[in-house]
C-alpha cells in the first residue's frame, strides 16, 4: 500500500524554494536573460526583437520542462491550455483596445505596440505555469503547522500569509470544478449553447464582443466567488489549529489577542 510517507516528496521545503526562485530569477530580475539578449545583439546576427524572442522562448521551454518533470504531462498540458487561452485573450483584447483608443498606446509606434503585446503574451505563457507550479509545491498544512509554532507578532502575520497561500492553492481546485460546470453549459467551450434563430447571427462583431466580454467577466467573478466562499470555514480551521498548538505549548492566546482577521 502506498502510504503518506511513501508518497511525500523528500525534497526539503527550503531546497524547493531555492530551486524555484532560481528558476524564476529571469522573471524577478531579468537576469540572465537580459545579459544573453545583449550578447546576441552584439553578434549582429539578431535584431533586438528577435534576440528577445529567441531567449525568452528558450527560457519558456526550460520552465515547461521543469513543470513536465515535476507535474507530469497531463498537468503541463492543462497549465499550457489555460496559459495560452489567457495570453491570447489578453493580447487580442489589448490589440482591439489599442486600435479603438490610440491614446492607450502612449505614443508608441504600431510596431512597438505589437512587440509589447508579444512580450505580454510570452510572459503569460511562461509565468502562469511557473506560478501554479510554485504555489502547489508547498504544503499549506505544513506551513500553517509551522507558523502556528511561532511566537509573538510573526505568528499573526505568518498565519495571515499561510491562509492567503492556501486560498491561492484553492483557486486551482475551483477552476477544475468551474471548468466541468462550464463544459456542461457550453459543450463547445467557446460557443454559446443557445445561439438563437437561424436569422440571428450571434457571431456578428457586436454580439461577439458581448459574448467574449461576458465570458471573461463570468469567469473572473466565478473564480473569485468560489475561491472566497470557503474562507470563513478555512479561517475557523486555521484558528482551531492555532489554538490547539498554543494549548500544547501551555500559553494563553485568545482570538482577540491574535486578531487573525
Amino acid at each position: 500500500m502506498n502510504t503518506h510517507t511513501d508518497n511525500k516528496r523528500t525534497v526539503p521545503w527550503w531546497l524547493k524554494l531555492v530551486l524555484l526562485l532560481m528558476l524564476g530569477m529571469p522573471g524577478f530580475s531579468g537576469w540572465p536573460n537580459g545579459w544573453i539578449i545583449q550578447k546576441l545583439q552584439a553578434t549582429d546576427l539578431f535584431t533586438p526583437e528577435i534576440a528577445y524572442i529567441v531567449v525568452w522562448v528558450a527560457y519558456a521551454c526550460s520552465v515547461w520542462l521543469v513543470v513536465l518533470i515535476c507535474a507530469g504531462k497531463q498537468k503541463l498540458l492543462n497549465y499550457l491550455g489555460a496559459a495560452f487561452v489567457l495570453a491570447l485573450t489578453v493580447a487580442m483584447l489589448g490589440a482591439i483596445l489599442r486600435g479603438l483608443f490610440p491614446l492607450l498606446a502612449a505614443g508608441l509606434s504600431r510596431e512597438a505596440t505589437s512587440f509589447k503585446l508579444i512580450r505580454i503574451f510570452i510572459n503569460i505563457i511562461i509565468f502562469l505555469p511557473f506560478s501554479v507550479l510554485f504555489i502547489n509545491s508547498f504544503s499549506a498544512k505544513q506551513l500553517i503547522d509551522r507558523v502556528a509554532h511561532f511566537d509573538g507578532r510573526y505568528r499573526t502575520v505568518g498565519l495571515h500569509l499561510a491562509l492567503a497561500f492556501r486560498v491561492f492553492q484553492h483557486t486551482g481546485e475551483v477552476v477544475f470544478n468551474l471548468f466541468q460546470i462550464w463544459a456542461e453549459e457550453y459543450p463547445e467551450k467557446i460557443v454559446p449553447r443557445n445561439e438563437g434563430s437561424r436569422k440571428f447571427r450571434w457571431y456578428a462583431p457586436g454580439n461577439l464582443l458581448v459574448w467574449g466580454w461576458g465570458c471573461i467577466h463570468a469567469w473572473i467573478f466565478a473564480c473569485i466567488i468560489h475561491t472566497f466562499e470557503p474562507i470563513p470555514a478555512m479561517v475557523a480551521e486555521v484558528e482551531r489549529i492555532d489554538r490547539a498548538n498554543n494549548s500544547h505549548k501551555g500559553t494563553k492566546n485568545t482570538k482577540e489577542q491574535k486578531g487573525l482577521l
Partner: peptide
C-alpha cells in the same frame, strides 16, 4: 443535461435571474 449534486455552483457565481438572462442572451425564444 445534468444538474450537479451541489447545484448551486452551476449558477457560476451569478444571481438566479442573472444566470438565466446570461444563458439565453442570444436566444429570446
Amino acid at each position: 443535461r445534468l444538474i450537479f449534486q451541489d447545484a448551486i455552483d452551476q449558477l457560476f457565481g451569478k444571481s438566479i435571474d442573472g444566470h438565466l438572462a446570461w444563458v439565453f442572451r442570444f436566444d429570446r425564444e
